[in-house]
Design a protein around this nucleic acid. Structure first.
Lengths: 295, 295
DNA sequence: CATCCAGCATTAGCGATACTGATGCACATG
DNA sequence: CATGTGCATCAGTATCGCTAATGCTGGATG
């Protein structure tokens, strides 16, 4: 009865639905059960966790919410990790890819793997950045491909919810995408610091997210001027071309977009890297693909 | 009954004690209850988790063990985090320090804080590196001080079991400790790569651990020639002086040890940094000390 | 200000659960 | 082959965790 994941799950549902009854419906309980769950949790922790009428988290509840999601995720990850043990050679490979992570070289390796292992079904899923790690942890995907900006020898930051290894697959220079007529568009290279106060587009599911940029460059700048929720690189290019702001992309991608110019970033020394994420004990086919990607 | 922390706890106890009965005694249960707990877990996960006679984890059990400790830690962290909310101004400040983290400057800041806040009881605890973060997360300490080697702008690696912030307190050059008669002892500075194949002493609770060194320098070398389990820097100095191997230390500390020479490391660009760890919502006094340490 | 109502709390009751204590059974040891 | 250690199993019981019904409270409405 101590901090039962079950109680946490209904707590999260209550906070998200902002209603006991709605949470009950969503979870397949009665409203009474939900009420008792919350009461039990509050009793256990000795504090009020949700304010009623209107329903919402208290300060303590907000704290708990920060823990609840990772906790529940890790539970699923543990389940998946245990389930993977002893799993025979599966005939299906599920890949979770970040938006810009599926490069021609990766696709080539994958094609060669399929050629060498007849009967292998492959399932490629494109997800948002955070969801990739989650899919690998929970076993929804056999492998994950993420990308982002980092110093040349630093690994990409990954939410740590379980034993998972990231291996570099490919690196290329990082570029900033400017509209073709931009005053800086003729430069051979640019320093990131000079652009900290420029207008930026935050496109966390398409380009390098501004948060990553801030972390990698160790600064406070890069405040978003516009937020782009799509996963389509061309759409982002259109926005940049129209002058809505700048975006950071791997150089080869930036060079391919019409109406814009991709200028290589010279300082700080950052690269765009694709990494493959795999669980501690991946299936045989997955292991094989990891070998090809990194070998 | 899905993956109850209770069941996990007894699972961990069983694996650690390598016995159902011993685990039962440790947990205050009957042997029967423990047997049923394990059976329930195995039934839930659909795999055998522990081998009996002799008792030990199966492959799946080993996987689960990797998750169990962080999971239980995070549960305690969540508890502590929630309990901290609304806590009035406490009159006692508990500091968890890593072995080399308690520098003169830190002690000075602490002394000034005590002078300014009469009636403040301070409790300083020296712990191993991993235990510091754990103490902060579980609320056993209000603040933690850790140290280690890292690239100048990189944060120290901290086990991610909850919302916790690390702020740099002090940085100084990293040095390698050589016996006084060592052939390289007259050098003005040394490159770490040249020492990768030397004999090293692994002293994770005293000097910079070799694991950190490997990670920071991105290499495979630094295989331990001798392991030193103590937390006493002078004892480590004696071992180095006697030629048992080398160790990495902050320069000022290395310079103070007799019979040895501390040579500054010039490449890769690594520093020894002390960071203060605090939970998301630290108590008022703790917050004040953080301000003084970092300000 | 009276009424209504949406929605959370409370309670009784019952089936499921989680313990204990006793017993069974398998394996290692001498 | 006898013995003992230690896990599995089983019966019994207290407790838990649900549902269904009912109570209660704060806000909207005229």
């Amino acid at each position: 009865m101590h901090m039962d994941p079950h109680l946490l799950r209904t707590f999260v549902a209550v906070v998200e639905h902002r209603s006991f009854s709605a949470a009950a419906r969503a979870l397949g309980y009665t409203q009474s059960a939900v009420s008792q769950h919350i009461a039990a949790l509050e009793n256990d922790l000795g504090t009020r966790l949700v304010e009623r009428r209107p329903v919402g988290p208290t300060a303590a509840g907000e704290r708990l919410m920060e823990h609840a999601a990772p906790l529940l995720l890790r539970i699923d990850a543990a389940r998946a990790d245990v389930a993977r043990v002893g799993r025979a050679h599966p005939t299906r490979l599920t890949l979770a890819c970040g938006p810009v992570a599926l490069t021609p070289s990766v696709a080539g390796d994958l094609a060669r793997l399929r050629a060498d292992t007849p009967g292998l079904a492959v399932d490629v899923q494109v997800l948002g950045r955070a969801a990739v790690a989650q899919a690998v942890l929970t076993g929804a995907a056999d492998l994950g491909l993420i990308d982002g900006a980092a110093a040349p020898s630093d690994p990409l930051p990954v939410p740590d919810a379980g034993p998972m290894t990231g291996l570099a697959v490919a690196e290329q220079p990082l570029a900033v995408l400017l509209p073709a007529g931009h005053p800086l568009a003729h430069r051979g290279s640019l320093r990131l610091f000079d652009l900290a106060d420029a207008h930026w587009i935050d496109a966390p599911d398409t380009a390098v997210s501004l948060g990553q940029l801030r972390a990698a460059a160790n600064t406070d700048g890069f405040r978003p001027h516009l937020t782009y929720g799509g996963t389509d690189v061309y759409g982002l290019g259109v926005l940049v071309a129209a002058g809505h702001g700048l975006a950071a992309l791997p150089l080869s991608l930036a060079a391919a977009l019409p109406g814009t110019v991709g200028i290589r970033l010279s300082a700080p020394r950052l690269v765009h890297r694709v990494e493959v994420l795999h669980p501690r004990a991946p299936a045989a086919v997955a292991q094989e693909l990891v070998g090809r990607l990194t070998g």
